[in-house]
Design a protein around this nucleic acid. Structure first.
Lengths: 209, 209
DNA sequence: GCGAAATTCAACGTATACATTAATAAACAC
DNA sequence: GTGTTTATTAATGTATACGTTGAATTTCGC
């Protein structure tokens, strides 16, 4: 499988708050992270998309991104290839990248696929007869979801929900499955911005197991 | 796509290229838009992997690939990013790309995911009550599969099988699903080289619909 | 004034240059 | 001979250079 394209944890200093000169200078904080500039660019651009700094439909030129991030076009291009592969953006030959919109249709499609994958995950898990310890994270997440739901805390619910899905899929140990779900993760996140509650609840399908 | 046939003569002086492939006879009148070198590289490397020219575990340096394809490292790198994203190779910092092996475990994982996705596709299709015309390709493929199976024609079976899966998924019209399956396509192909018959038969799940 | 042809412009695709650094080999002390 | 340190090499990551070409703009014919 591809190297861990998943977003680990390094969300601290990904976004350059300032606009240094196009030249890379010492003003850039030297983190112990040996992340490549390509990775940085990937994270930064991705973040801006998820945070709606670059809303759907937004177009940004490679050169603008590069200057904005204080790096050259090369790592920007490489980051864009990854983002395009992930379905977040589209690279239009003369117009830079374009943030792909997430239409209601897209959402439905994504949820259909996700539901299928998670159902399979639940089934696999059930078959594997996991220990209670393994299930703890899931149970916790479910409890948090219910709790948040009662408190009308949508954000909390979403967070717990995400933990649940993440945990469910990861417990299967099926890397291919994990990757497939992760690939949809960002788009789900964006879709969720539009519709937090249209979502079906795959919780039942696992709780009964 | 833009026609990027740009190999100025000065290139010969700069690089002792051994492979003047980017040469085009003047008799060609209206050639269709040229793919980018990145695309070419992607296709070429991918093909070599699928054809086992680069067997699993094989490592090839960027520079070797570049020289081999008669292009610079830039498009090679971009192609490798795509291939890595697709799970065909891994890019190891100092050792170029490495063709990922497809272990029996991988195969099982892939099939688990594929089965889930295709089951969902079948369900979606059934719910949509497709016309007979739409189903024709599926029926044909199924028939060919059965036929090939009887004739012990494994290759024929595999081909029909592939058509069946392709068609099944495409009939749903769910682009996300189509993409997800397509993304697994190459790995499936490689897995299939090892085990043509360990495969479960999702045929039933659709035929009954 | 309006459409077509010519021109300008800028973004890109690709090649190449360059500094960095891991891997390898060489030198060395013991 | 062996383990350690230093030099060498090579592959990379990134920056930059550059020709190509689609798009925008202007010029031109009418």
């Amino acid at each position: 499988m591809a190297a861990s394209r998943n977003q680990p944890a390094n969300r601290a200093a990904a976004v350059p708050g300032k606009r240094p000169s196009p030249k890379r200078s010492a003003t850039v904080i030297n983190l112990p992270s040996r992340a490549s500039l390509t990775d940085d660019a990937y994270q930064a651009i991705r973040r801006r998309i998820l945070d709606n700094v670059y809303p759907p439909g937004q177009q940004v030129l490679e050169s603008v991104l590069a200057e904005d991030l204080g790096i050259s076009r090369t790592p920007v291009r490489e980051a864009l290839i990854r983002l395009a592969n992930e379905g977040l953006v589209e690279v239009i030959p003369r117009h830079g990248m374009r943030v792909l919109p997430v239409s209601p249709l897209d959402m439905r499609e994504i949820y259909e696929v996700l539901t299928a994958l998670e159902s399979a995950a639940a089934e696999m898990l059930a078959r594997r007869k996991p220990s209670d310890a393994e299930l703890k994270s899931l149970v916790d997440a479910t409890r948090d979801m219910t709790r948040a739901l009662k408190a009308n805390d949508l954000d909390g619910w979403a967070a717990a929900d995400e933990r649940f899905h993440q945990g469910l899929v990861e417990l299967t140990g099926n890397r291919t499955l994990i990757d497939a779900v992760a690939r949809l993760g960002d788009r789900v996140h964006r879709a969720r911005m539009f519709t937090l509650r249209l979502r079906p609840k795959p919780v039942n399908s696992t709780q009964e197991h």
